[in-house]
């Protein structure tokens, strides 16, 4: 499925983040090769979103390194990280609510709009040329997500599922190599989840992306991801392919508590483990 010979795209080592006395992320390690689809799971409050915020620079790591394309990203402002090729979506959708669908996508092109402020104010031919070009690109993008008819709609008026799709479209418009999806299936019904899973596969193949995914719905994680890292209390407690993770007693314990884990252990009676 994945090619381990592909170069490393993201390499996180010894990452720590403290909020006051709270260690939200402890010695976090994660390596993602180009083209992989990796899941990051764990119970609520395990620190998954914090990891995302660290990768995208919204929080600055207390220590450790985040190497993206062999460049350390710690301490670099978020907008520059995005411009280097990491885009993300948010757990609670964060669109630009009062802007049109089209503008939501067009904003992603701002850093390479091709014209400057003066061109815009004086309306030079350069402005018209590039504005037309980026508008068409944005419209094509909306087309990929079947949102082209919605281009004039105000984003906050879209139904939930379309908002999710728009958010992913917007992230992709930033032309990332690594896409971070934070609980894309949250709040979706089972039919929508199926659609979403297809969408994730589709965009991965279509845009040659590497994807890191946080998700609670096991169906999505197990169905989509090639590798899974499990976090609890800010630490990595397990990593492996979906099958390995499903049978890992530590994971079961983290999710269901110790009693259930022991039950699972008794049931499987293959491995013994003391937490």
């Amino acid at each position: 499925m994945t090619d381990q010979n592909q170069p490393l795209l993201l390499e996180i080592s010894a990452l720590n983040k403290n909020f006051g006395g709270l260690r939200a992320v402890k010695n976090f390690e994660l390596s993602i090769h180009k083209g992989e689809l990796v899941g990051l799971i764990g119970p609520n409050g395990a620190g998954k979103t914090t990891v995302f915020n660290l990768i995208t620079g919204i929080y600055v790591a207390s220590s450790g390194t985040i190497k993206f394309k062999d460049q350390n990203m710690v301490g670099i402002p978020p907008f520059e990280i995005t411009r280097t090729g990491i885009a993300r979506t948010f757990q609670n959708i964060r669109l630009f609510p009062n802007l049109t669908v089209l503008d939501n996508v067009r904003i992603a092109y701002h850093s390479h709009a091709g014209y400057n402020l003066l061109d815009a104010i004086v309306r030079t031919p350069r402005f018209f040329h590039h504005e037309k070009e980026l508008t068409e690109r944005a419209q094509d993008f909306l087309g990929v997500f079947n949102l082209q008819d919605r281009q004039g709609e105000i984003a906050k008026n879209l139904p939930y599922g379309e908002q999710r799709r728009l958010e992913i479209a917007r992230a992709l418009a930033a032309e990332p190599q690594l896409l971070l999806l934070d609980e894309p299936a949250a709040g979706m019904n089972s039919k929508e989840v199926v659609t979403l899973m297809e969408l994730i596969h589709f965009i991965r193949d279509r845009f040659k992306l590497t994807i890191l995914l946080i998700e609670h719905q096991m169906r999505v994680v197990m169905g989509v991801c090639e590798w899974i890292t499990v976090m609890d209390f800010g630490e990595v407690i397990a990593r492996g392919n979906p099958a390995e993770i499903q049978s890992d007693p530590k994971v079961v314990e983290a999710y269901l508590g110790r009693g259930a884990a022991e039950l699972a252990k008794k049931l499987s009676e293959k491995r013994s483990h003391v937490a």
């Binding site: 170069p7 490393l8 390499e11 080592s13 010894a14 390194t65 190497k67 062999d70």
Partner: peptide, 8 residues
């Protein structure tokens, strides 16, 4: 591909 992890 991998560089040494010591901080510059």
């Amino acid at each position: 591909m991998e560089k040494s992890t010591t901080a510059p």
